[in-house]
Structure formats: structure tokens, C-alpha cells
Amino acid sequence: MHSDDQTPDAAGPLPQGPSRRSFLKQTGGLLGVALAPPIASQAEALADKMAPASPIISGQASMSLNINGQARNLRLEPRTTLLDALRENLDLTGTKKGCDHGQCGACTVLVDGRRVNACLTLAVMTQGKQIQTIEGLAQGDELHPMQEAFLRHDGFQCGYCTPGQIMSGVACVKEGHATTDDQAREWMSGNICRCGAYPNILAAVREVAGQQAKG
């Protein structure tokens, strides 16, 4: 693992502080509107009333994401999704890119304990939140009960949807939405398996739900 997570930039050292581009964006955007009245005293009175304009990020910016309990520092554009940040910038390739449009569930991760589609989540909007991926599920060599159950029940064929299925299954059980077969099917419907391993996936999720119910 690199000691510094920053993505090397082929163009050379990255500019510090606001870039020229972001400065232009700011002056042309919010500040341009706020400062439009030309009379200084009016502008001052206005500034008193208004909260300071929030910064605008344009182009690459430094951010810190908390992933599997670790702070990871990186530079990303606002358009970078959490999925691409994980896979392309942090080499956490366990989270899979299927449809990239929120239709298949292969990219499911937990953000502050809730399952979400990482492909429709902007990385910049996950700062300050706890992100858990498939890589953060096992405790060292000890697999999470859901991972064990998927192995025991052969809950996959090609395996591509499996990390998403497992993350979704973990959340589904925690939410209390796996108490019957029908309920678990409905609440796992955001994860598509093209191989059709559904009966075995269902068995794995239901088994873990049963274990948790027994305490």
C-alpha cells in the first residue's frame, strides 16, 4: 500500500489552493451575483445579511474519504463517482461496475451503514461519511458470516455480482428485511444475477438472518 494515496498526476505537481479555473468560476458565479450592487456601503450591508458563499469546486480538488475505517486522501473532480474513486483511484476493485446506471446493484456499498449504489454517488458528497466496501467486511482472515454463507450455499456462478449481493445481503439482514423468503427476495431485488444463482443467494441471506435472530 502506498504511504500517500494521491494519484500521481502526469502533468506534474498539482496547483495548491484554488485553481485559476475555480477562481474564474467563483467570480462568474455566486460572487458575481453577490457583489453586483456597485455601491460599497450597500455591498457591506448585504454582506452582513448574507452567509458567506460556500466554496465552489471545479476541476480536481483534494478530498478525504473514510473507507473501511481508514482516511484516504485523494484528488478528484466533482464528477468522479464513488465507484470510480474506489476502483480507479484506490485500487479497491472488489466493488464491481456492472451497468453504471443504478440498475444492477453490482456496485453496492454501505455509506453510514446504509446500502447505496456507488455508481450514482458522487465521491465529493461522501466526505465525512463512513464508507464500507466488500474489502472491509472480513476481520483479518475471519470472513464475515455473510461471506461464509455465500461459500457454504454456493451463492454465485461467475462471481461478478457477488460483492454487491453480499453487501446488500448484510444490509438486508440488518434492516430486518430477510425474515421470510418472499420478503428477502423483494428486498434483494436491487441486485441482479445474470447467472441466475438466486436460490443459493436467497439461502445464504436467509441463513444469516436466522443466525442473527437466534442471537
Binding site: 455566486l30 448574507m50 460556500s54 465552489i56 469546486i57 464528477r79
Partner: peptide, 23 residues
């Protein structure tokens, strides 16, 4: 996806003003 700028609005007023200023 085309690139875009991003801001986190601190108030409803700031959010609506920013939107009104940029079609």
C-alpha cells in the same frame, strides 16, 4: 459525463440564488 462544478449550499437562500443565477 461532462465535467461540472460543485458546491454545497449552506442555506436555502444561497442554494436558490445560485440556481437562479445559472440556468
Amino acid at each position: 459525463m461532462n465535467n461540472f462544478a460543485y458546491t454545497q449550499a449552506a442555506s436555502t437562500k444561497e442554494a436558490t440564488a445560485a440556481k437562479a443565477a445559472d440556468k
